[in-house]
Amino acid sequence: MFEARLMNATILKKILDAVKDLLNEGTFDCSDSGIQLQAMDNSHVSLVSLTLRSDSFDKFRCDRNLSMGMNLGTMAKILKCANNDDTVTIKAQDNADTVTFMFESQNHEKVSDYEMKLMNLDQEHLGIPDTDYSCVVRMPSMEFARICRDLAQFSESMVICCTKEGVKFSASGDLGSANVKLAQTSNVDKEEEAVIIEMQEPVTLTFACRYLNAFTKATPLCNQVQLSMSADVPLVVEYRISDLGHIRYYLAPKIEE
């Protein structure tokens, strides 16, 4: 038996919004420790990794490890049927071929349940090594989303150059060029507005704007985003999900042919 409950549907809706542009389907691996989803987008360019810890759910029971392949478009449709302040319970029997989403209104007067067929997805699971990154940038997630949106108008690719003074985002194409420089915040009054850089070595890397823009669909999940970069390895874009866990996106830098 698997059962996981969240007092508020909003967070699950936001999580679905954060992945559904990149992934059509995904396998949710459920265990004692929580729920994990790892999947590559259709073109195998980026990797999405979602971790939700069991101890942060309002109720969590997982008697046997369970892998549930879900169509994320269908899951998003089902979650649209929940009000933001509804309690959501996800339930599945061991070895079941369906999963049930139950929504309960705050006054307990409306209870709805939606059953969804599970899929057998033959997805590869990738092992990701622990990496010490040359540069780790923490910045407001809205600012990052804005920069990705603005610079994508100029080019398919964006250069991110990080030094200890600051981080520079650049794009250039037929229309012209754009540069946005953010200095490291000197006085951190409000942590969510700060730009903080931890640098071992400066890095300059080029990334596809299309994917960066897809990652920023996670912006409503967290005020801050963390960018971890090293030469010649994938960038990690991480959004923390309050107490519940995190979503990480991996994207390899473009390379000279």
Binding site: S46, L47, H125, L126, G127, I128, T206, P234, Y250, E257
Partner: peptide
């Protein structure tokens, strides 16, 4: 010209 590598080439199949 820069090309976009496949993410799979950076990690191993677990």
């Amino acid at each position: 010209i820069k090309t976009q590598p496949d993410i799979k080439q950076y990690y191993w199949i677990a």
